[in-house]
Write a protein that binds this DNA or RNA. Structure first.
Lengths: 296, 296
DNA sequence: GAAAATATGTTATATTTCTTTCAAACTGTC
DNA sequence: GACAGTTTGAAAGAAATATAACATATTTTC
């Protein structure tokens, strides 16, 4: 027995006992509100006894009703329209006992979806517009998010000038804060071990009237009142470590948005930057920018 | 006090105590998975005590945490929380507009799956083992992959010492190449605008007998004969830009693998590094490393 | 139609989850 | 720096939720 919760429920409908069938079909029908149910509440709704619910869950391979709910949480459901074959295959192999990689994968996919959902919010559009139009953009990230900020800066630099990585060392800290309030904007990447620096910077930026966007994880509790937009990115998958990948996706989507916003006016610049890079690192090849033309 | 759960949470953010604010913002960020949480689980994630959660819920007008969840049910009861539903929803909404967000998402997910597949190959296991056991690890990435390399180094440093970011400027270029052949190993992150540097480095490393792993995109054509393992990561989704997210996932998975390989012998080190980071950046909190304990 | 097998419910117990109480820690004020 | 007020967490108790054991009902098999 394997697969998603939905899968298992459907499977067992065929040859289950009366009560089990009742429970299964109720669950399928009300999948969305299952997490709110308790074994008892569900039992009374289906008009079976409490133990029946527990037993049923065990019969389809979960430890308990609670355990089933947990799986639901991580379940990405069946998506026959997606790359499901490979995914399912991976799941199967994993369930056979290799390890719990695929669970992590499911969670990562969930995170990715969340990021794409963010990209549809009004805040998102506002930030994209700002990143395209504000004369100077400053980006920062401390500790482990330092690299993230760097990536974002590198990419954005292809599209526009005056994109700076704010550094403790460099004097651009001051440069940011002394620029006029509608001359600059700030993007802060943060995660987990929130550094005091990020917070201080956000405070100062607010004082200086500089619009600030915070990209962080769900554990961040400061910020909501200090910055203009907070983008919360899931970072916990059940790897030992937190993942920065979703944040990278977010950064990519932002850059993508800016590109669309700026339109084709940037192509010239991109060629130029490409050539610059080439000169300094010696790559010789087509000079049409990283992936221009992939837009479909 | 009235309105939806989300409303109330937002409202209280303004003038709540520190712990309350933390709880509220976490809830807001994770609204979709709140139904799966229990007061205790939430408490531990936000790093407050259990009673605080209960009290908080009461302070914003619910009888208990459970009561809040029930209200949530009414608020978002028929809102999709299952990833599959959310995907569908996203698809529906984006199909209306002309931007092909959801298509890009699908591709990204496919890329993620590919990365997880890589993590099951023998090469992968070999690299993980090497990263765990070789006395010194060198990592490099040029241009846009510079940040990627940085992230990888930062994370790996939590687990072991002698992890170095190879830089054009720093003398560690030489340090790498003069170390004995089984004293060091090298990881190169590359993508698209393959720099001559990466290639030269790979050549020299080979001459010096240093095992080298190349992480790159499908367009890379050198390398197969110059390095010991090539991990090819999809980077093209139909965003204007290439995505580094999948590569970030790969880096994460590698670090995760190394952690598993090293076992719990590294916890001590991790505490130490954590404290170091804290001292220099001023974060004050638990000193148990970024996400220790999330392993299930 | 009776015996065996299976399925279900009742009651009692164990476990989890939540709340209360109270003391310690923190905050701001004089 | 001491005081009052607030916030927070630890421990213990109360409520809920889930499991186990056993008894009853139902179905299956012969």
């Amino acid at each position: 027995m394997s697969g998603s919760v939905r899968q298992r429920l459907s499977d067992c409908l065929a040859n289950a006992s009366k009560a089990d069938k009742a429970v299964a079909s109720f669950m399928l029908a009300q999948l969305n509100s299952i997490p709110f149910e308790t074994a008892a509440s569900l039992a009374s709704k289906v008009e079976v006894s409490e133990p029946t619910v527990g037993r049923f869950c065990r019969s389809i391979g979960y430890k308990s009703f609670k355990n089933l709910k947990n799986h639901l949480k991580q379940d990405i459901g069946d998506r026959p329209w997606l790359i499901s074959d490979r995914l399912r295959d991976l799941q199967r192999r994993t369930q056979a006992g290799e390890d719990q990689l695929s669970r992590g994968l499911e969670l990562e996919i969930g995170g990715l979806v969340a990021v794409y959902e963010l990209a549809q919010t009004p805040e998102w559009k506002r930030v994209v517009k700002r990143l395209a139009e504000t004369p100077a953009v400053f980006v920062t990230g401390f500790q482990t998010e330092r690299g993230m900020a760097q990536i974002f800066v590198n990419q954005l630099q292809y599209l526009r000038d005056r994109v700076h990585l704010v550094d403790l060392a460099g004097g651009n800290f001051a440069e940011l804060l002394t620029s006029g309030s509608n001359q600059s904007c700030l993007v802060i990447f943060e995660a987990r071990r929130y550094s005091r620096m990020a917070r201080l910077l956000a405070q100062d930026a607010r004082k200086a009237g500089i619009p600030t966007t915070l990209v962080t994880d769900p554990f961040c509790d400061w910020g909501r009142d200090l910055v203009d937009e907070v983008f919360v990115v899931p970072t916990e998958f059940n790897l030992f470590w937190e993942s920065t990948a979703q944040m990278a996706s977010l950064a990519n989507l932002l850059v993508n948005g800016v590109f669309i916003e700026l339109g084709h006016t940037v192509e010239e610049r991109m060629d130029y930057i490409s050539r610059l890079y080439s000169r300094f690192t010696g790559y010789v090849g087509d000079s049409s920018g990283p992936s221009v033309g992939h837009q479909t």
